[in-house]
């Protein structure tokens, strides 16, 4: 079998996108009634749900409470039917534990936790359908859910992946492109300040190329930010109009 061509001579990717183009991104805030905040996001065929509970009193041992800020607790899980081949367990494996930790670090950097001493904020994300960029979709969904819950954030957290194929940097990789095994990076950005909340580079990449990959990822993050911002503003405008007063 011939190796799949990830970038055609005309500069198109297997799904017809340009190198810097994102997949179609759709999102909604306030999906569920019971949690404090919730959101759903679709990035191409990757679909993720996020819910936020809190800030609330510590669950379990009170000794875990932090005297000066809120504890951020995250769980990343994947529906057993989300992947091409059925997953045995939704969470608890090494990969999801790592993802949970990443999420926690990302949101500790973004949430103004010092406003809520001794309390706890739970962020639970769930991949319903996996088609590449799972972590990034989760971060984006979780950002919307945190905003929906009215928890103060320094800024949005927007995430996107990027990879390198024959000198060209590709943004927002699909599963097909991820599976090809080229160098790839995941980046979570606070877009206004340009601060990076998470940066992860898998596999070897020449130092000279890093700039191009990061630039592609950063550009994609800003594009994601534009979409998320539109979703949030629409949501806020709609609700304020309804509430009137």
């Amino acid at each position: 079998m011939a190796a799949l061509e990830l970038l055609s001579a005309e500069g198109f990717r297997p799904d017809g996108r340009r190198p810097a183009e994102l997949r179609k991104l759709r999102a909604r805030m306030g999906v569920f009634a019971q949690p404090d905040g919730s959101a759903y996001i679709e990035q191409g065929n990757t679909k993720a749900l996020a819910v936020v509970y809190g800030p609330h009193e510590m669950r379990g041992p009170r000794s875990k409470a932090l005297p000066d800020r809120a504890l951020v607790n995250c769980q990343y899980s994947m529906a057993t039917f989300s992947t091409g081949e059925r997953k045995r367990r939704p969470h608890g494996d090494r990969k999801s534990s790592e993802m949970s930790l990443h999420l926690k670090q990302t949101f500790e950097a973004a949430i103004l936790t010092e406003l809520f001493p001794r309390s706890q904020i739970d962020i639970y994300v769930q991949i319903l359908q996996a088609d590449g960029g799972n972590y990034c979709a989760c971060v984006n969904a979780a950002t919307l859910a945190v905003i929906d819950a009215g928890i103060p954030l320094r800024d949005y957290v927007c995430a996107s992946s990027a990879g390198l194929v024959e000198d060209a940097a590709l943004a927002d990789l699909s599963y097909l492109e991820e599976a090809a095994g080229g160098p790839q990076a995941a980046l979570a950005l606070l877009p206004t300040s340009g601060q990076m909340a998470l940066l992860q580079l898998d596999s070897r990449l020449h130092e000279d190329r890093l700039g191009a990959v990061l630039e592609a990822a950063g550009g994609a993050c800003r594009a994601v930010h534009a979409v998320l911002d539109r979703v949030v503003r629409e949501h806020v405008r709609e609700l304020t109009a309804l509430l009137g007063d």
Partner: peptide, 19 residues
């Protein structure tokens, strides 16, 4: 159904998002 911008008082308000 998307709520159409109704030109109601919601539009006069200064609406912001984080950041």
């Amino acid at each position: 159904k998307a709520v159409a911008p109704s030109g109601s008082r919601g539009d006069e308000k200064h609406l912001v998002a984080p950041g």
